[in-house]
């Protein structure tokens, strides 16, 4: 166990935890955009920035990555921290002005758009938090989507921006997306799901007959786990 201070509160924590883990466990709110407990932290959004140390040695770090240590002094709401968060949010608001989720979060944090930043007109709500790419790679294990280009041109896409033949249509990327950028459509009868520009035929439950998962996904699971397809053709409510 180590002893540290967050916002003047003395806290005991287990070694190896991050500042974010410990803060949340102790009821201290730190905003995040790219964090998900199921994934390794990425440190890309910088919303969770906090200030550590004191005086001239004080510096801003990302709480999702920084490990707690004995005697660590953390300030989760200093002026510098507020400036970083404000800037990050204003930059993202200008990047994705159409995302309602972002606008709501900004409002909660009392951050207003910077009028000098011209709002982007490309309609993209993607803030490159990487949750979708990381989920597809590490949780689903498919790596159907990834990044392309760098800097201002960086974006999340399927290779060559064409429909991917390895995507299984599971929709995990869409459900983890914090800004509503990744869209998943289902046909009126429920037999087809469309995501990343590709249509997926849905499998109907062998018991209740409801469409419940893309066939490709079931084939993938069967291949990975060795469970025969027939057993997988049952939806979760009938199982």
């Amino acid at each position: 166990m180590v002893n540290l201070t967050i916002d003047n509160r003395k806290i005991q924590a287990e070694e190896g935890q991050t500042i974010l883990d410990v803060a949340r466990k102790n009821g201290i709110t730190i905003p995040t955009l790219c964090h998900n407990d199921a994934l390794e932290p990425s440190g890309s959004c910088r919303m969770c920035s906090v200030e550590i140390g004191e005086g001239a040695r004080a510096k801003v770090v990302t709480s999702c990555l920084y490990p707690v240590a004995e005697g660590l002094v953390v300030n989760s709401g200093s002026e510098r921290v507020k400036n970083v968060r404000r800037t990050v949010m204003q930059l993202l608001l200008a990047r994705s002005p159409e995302s309602e989720q972002l606008a709501r979060m900004a409002e909660d944090l009392g951050i207003h758009p910077e009028p000098r930043f011209k709002p982007s007109e490309d309609g993209s709500k993607c803030i490159l938090c990487r949750l979708c790419v990381r989920t597809c790679e590490t949780v689903v294990g498919v790596s159907a989507i990834g990044f392309s280009f760098r800097g201002p041109e960086k974006n999340v896409c399927t290779p060559f921006h064409e429909s991917s033949n390895i995507c299984i249509g599971c929709g995990a990327c869409a459900s983890v997306c914090p800004t509503g950028h990744i869209e998943m459509h289902v046909s009126p009868s429920g037999d087809v799901r469309t995501i990343w520009g590709r249509d997926f035929k849905m499998a109907a439950c062998s018991k209740c007959g409801l469409y419940f998962a893309p066939e490709d996904q079931l084939t993938y699971i069967s291949g990975r786990t060795g469970v025969p397809m027939e057993e997988l053709m049952v939806c979760s409510s009938c199982r």
Binding site: G43, S44, L91, A94, R130, F147, F149, R150, G151
Partner: peptide, 18 residues
């Protein structure tokens, strides 16, 4: 620098662009 930014973090990618 904006065009050499890797694009991973928001302050560098978006901030330098602005």
């Amino acid at each position: 620098l904006a065009s050499e930014s890797c694009g991973k973090c928001v302050p560098c990618r978006e901030g330098l662009q602005r």
